[in-house]
């Protein structure tokens, strides 16, 4: 079939008849995503300054802290079965899960295929490569496991919500823990809300809660859930960027307060 098609003359990389500033959006995406990946990788390998003594603050990059030296560690310090020659940081044990959720996210896929891989760099602009296999073969076929990362991301939300609650407790001079609100509390609470909106607006979740069915009128709860997720899903891109910025800022905030560079002002 398609034998009547004549060969289309390919345009070289970046060649286009477009006269608008088509390169701005992929450039901003490249800078935004690239900066986040570089910073989060650096922060994950640090293994220090991810919590603030005397407060309940814990960086979201390190939550849940499975093993570690902070009081937030669920199962104590670094276990002996982790080889000592391996670089250890509590973030390295868990960051693959939210990272995988973002990497396989339908929005981010489209964004980084354009900005990082130029496939295409922008609509109706020439590409650098002739060959193309899409998401049909390894490794990109693994993008199809996005829903498993979604399950993990929902699980992580509970820990982050608990962290926001923990961030409302501060140690007094007499050693007791008292309720309070600091700027860090607001940052970590905003973080869980932003990540919540991003996670709950996921395309896979939209499918799983109702999209899988052709008839929803006889399933009132699913219909309601599908309607809610669909309305959030319309702003998935916005939530993706806001949550990316806020989660990165949360780590920066906790890190700088922990290092004594920033002062955490108490509101209550």
């Amino acid at each position: 079939m398609a034998s009547n098609l004549v060969s289309i003359q390919r345009r070289g990389f970046g060649q286009t008849m477009r006269k608008d500033t088509w390169w701005v959006a992929p450039l901003l995406t490249f800078i935004g995503l690239g900066s986040f990946v570089l910073y989060s990788t650096w922060a994950a390998f640090q293994g220090a300054h991810y919590w603030v003594p005397g407060t309940g603050y814990l960086s979201p990059f390190y939550s849940p802290e499975l093993f570690g030296n902070s009081p937030h560690a669920l199962f104590g310090p670094q276990p002996s079965w982790i080889p000592s020659w391996l670089p250890f940081s509590p973030a390295l044990l868990i960051l693959w899960a939210p990272g995988g959720f973002r990497f396989t996210c339908y929005y981010y896929r489209g964004a980084y295929y354009k900005a990082m891989w130029a496939d295409p760099i922008a609509c109706a602009v020439g590409e650098p490569r002739k060959g193309y296999r899409g998401e049909n073969w390894f490794p990109l076929i693994l993008q199809n496991i996005h829903r498993y990362f979604l399950y993990l991301a929902i699980f992580f939300l509970f820990f982050l919500a608990y962290d926001a609650w923990s961030a409302m407790w501060f140690q007094a001079a007499d050693g007791t823990w008292r309720f309070g609100v600091g700027v860090g509390t607001l940052v970590l609470t905003a973080n869980v809300f932003c990540l919540g909106f991003y996670t709950l607006s996921c395309h896979s979740l939209r499918h799983l809660v109702g999209g899988v069915y052709d008839v929803l009128s006889n399933k009132p709860i699913r219909k309601k859930a599908y309607g809610c997720v669909s309305s959030l899903n319309k702003r998935h891109m916005l939530f993706a960027w806001i949550s990316l910025f806020v989660v990165g800022f949360s780590d920066i905030y906790v890190r700088l307060v922990s290092m004594g560079i920033w002062t955490d002002y108490r509101i209550i």
């Binding site: 339908y106 929005y107 896929r109 489209g110 295929y113 354009k114 496939d119 295409p120 609509c123 109706a124 193309y132 899409g134 998401e135 049909n136 990109l140 076929i141």
Partner: peptide, 13 residues
């Protein structure tokens, strides 16, 4: 060949 679509959303635009 739905796997060929890499979600660039140019069609929607």
């Amino acid at each position: 060949g739905i796997g060929y679509c890499n979600i660039t959303k140019c069609c929607t635009k």
